[in-house]
């Protein structure tokens, strides 16, 4: 299971499991847009594309990728809105 999730305050969890690419990324983008700087979001995604899409978008948009944890059939992406 995730190592930081228990210790870090997650402000919002986005359960995008079952959604096809690029759905999970779009949901994350929406949440970040509406959120405050410093807030931490957790996205749950079963989509393979998220593994490359989310880090790529975060690098471009300059937000923090805090942690990526593999779970059973899905991945946790913990992200912080940096600006």
């Amino acid at each position: 299971m995730s190592t930081l999730v228990g210790k870090l305050q997650i402000d919002k969890t986005i359960d995008a499991r079952g959604m096809a690419c690029p759905g999970p990324l779009m949901n994350l983008i929406g949440a970040i847009r509406q959120g405050q700087v410093g807030q931490v979001f957790e996205v749950l995604s079963s989509d393979e594309g998220s593994k490359t899409d989310i880090p790529a978008w975060l690098a471009k948009a300059r937000h923090d990728l805090v942690e990526v944890v593999q779970d059973n059939g899905y991945t946790h992406f913990v992200v912080r809105k940096a600006r």
């Binding site: 096809a20 690419c21 690029p22 990324l25 989509d47 393979e48 594309g49 998220s50 490359t52 899409d53 989310i54 880090p55 790529a56 978008w57 471009k60």
Partner: peptide
């Protein structure tokens, strides 16, 4: 497209280097 057509990683020819999303 992998998802749409039900194609798994193991179904791809070795010349394919990986799977990615559109943002990547």
């Amino acid at each position: 497209s992998m998802d749409m057509f039900g194609i798994g990683r193991e179904d791809l020819d070795p010349i394919v280097d990986g799977i990615e999303g559109v943002a990547a």
